[in-house]
């Protein structure tokens, strides 16, 4: 009866994915102080993301953005009863374990911070705490799930107050899921080979370096001791799950550029399980009201009277046009 769960133990998939499920339908807010965390909790946020700076400020400051100061994280952990998340640099396993030891409830392996590993994301199955990862496309989402992500979010374009990239990523993933649903076994296998290809980059680079032929060395030990066949098999397993469910097998949130209550509602309307709001709350002119308004709009995303009411007289953060932004300034390009 309780079929596959008997073999699962502490910290494994069901508990990690189960934690993410508790946030469904909710809003997760970026906060930088205990006071902001309390405002978020009071507004009805289902979790907070503890940061030193919100993405808009990280973007403005430039330089290398790292895991937040543990003192800052502890301050926020101690101030609220809702779950506290924190960001880890892409591929920075040691930051990941450090945050886990601090008692953070979920990690966000985030492109908002400067990536630490040019080849690999964190092998999230090795962590006990659940991890959420950004994705622009279905292949990215599938790779992250293969690595153990318990939750996926769009990357969007953080710190811009502009939802266009989040919408692009939602549409892209949904489109690709729609295509996957009708694929034959053989076609799905083909897709899985393409999706797993990215794990070969390091091996190909080394092969090119040593033999002048990027395909001279192939096969074994591509990702944390796993060979290409294993990675392809894992990818295929997740793709089959996507095909069967018609959606990602983990909770899927929108993130990156949400700045108003109506933005939050749009994310839900497009089928997302919930919404991350980064700079949108505490870079607005009235964070308390904005926080409550975004929660209400997300909970009632098709009740346009409520959305109109909560939005009245509320102005969102100053936004940025992404088209005019040089590619190297786009955070979404980080990771693969």
């Amino acid at each position: 009866m309780s079929t596959d769960i008997s073999q699962l133990r502490f910290g494994e998939e069901l508990i990690k994915r189960g934690f993410a499920k508790m946030t469904k339908g909710g809003v997760i807010m970026d906060v930088t102080t205990a006071e902001q965390a309390k405002i978020a909790e009071d507004a009805g946020a289902v979790a907070v993301m503890a940061l030193e700076r919100v993405p808009a400020d990280i973007r403005a400051a430039g330089g290398v953005a790292r895991m937040a100061d543990p003192e800052k994280i502890k301050e926020i952990l101690n101030s609220v009863s809702i779950p506290v998340m924190a960001k880890v640099r892409i591929g920075h396993v040691s930051e990941g374990y450090t945050l886990e030891a601090l008692g953070v409830d979920m990690l966000d392996e985030s492109e908002v911070l400067t990536p630490a590993d040019p080849f690999f994301h964190v092998y999230k199955k090795q962590l006990k705490v659940p991890v959420v990862c950004g994705a622009r496309t279905l292949p990215e989402a599938v790779r992250r799930i293969v690595e153990g992500a318990a939750m996926i979010r769009t990357k969007g374009e953080a710190g811009t107050g502009n939802v266009v990239e989040a919408v692009r990523h939602i549409r892209m993933v949904n489109e690709e899921i729609g295509i996957i649903k009708d694929l034959s076994q053989e076609e799905l296998k083909k897709v899985s080979e393409k999706v797993a290809e990215n794990y070969r980059v390091l091996r190909k680079t080394a092969s090119e370096d040593l033999f002048g032929d990027e395909n001279y060395l192939t096969g074994y030990n591509l990702f944390y001791g796993q060979n290409l066949e294993k990675m392809e098999a894992e990818v295929l397993k997740v793709l089959k799950e996507v095909r069967r469910l018609g959606r990602l097998p983990v909770v899927n949130f929108a993130a990156g550029g949400v700045a108003t209550p109506a933005d939050g509602a749009l994310m839900m309307k497009l089928g997302m399980d919930g919404v991350f709001v980064g700079s949108g709350i505490f870079k607005s002119t009235d964070p308390k009201r904005m926080a409550k308004a975004v929660v209400e709009a997300v909970e009632n995303y098709e009740d346009y009277k409520i959305i109109g009411n909560v939005s009245s007289g509320l102005s969102g953060m100053q936004g940025m046009e992404i088209e005019k932004m040089p590619k190297e300034q786009r955070l979404q390009e980080r990771g693969w």
Binding site: I5, R9, G11, F19, S81, P83, G103, K128, V129
Partner: peptide
């Protein structure tokens, strides 16, 4: 008592 077992890392089956 809320969250009496601890944080997410203490979640179990």
């Amino acid at each position: 008592e809320r969250n009496a077992y601890g944080r997410q890392i203490d979640s179990f089956m």
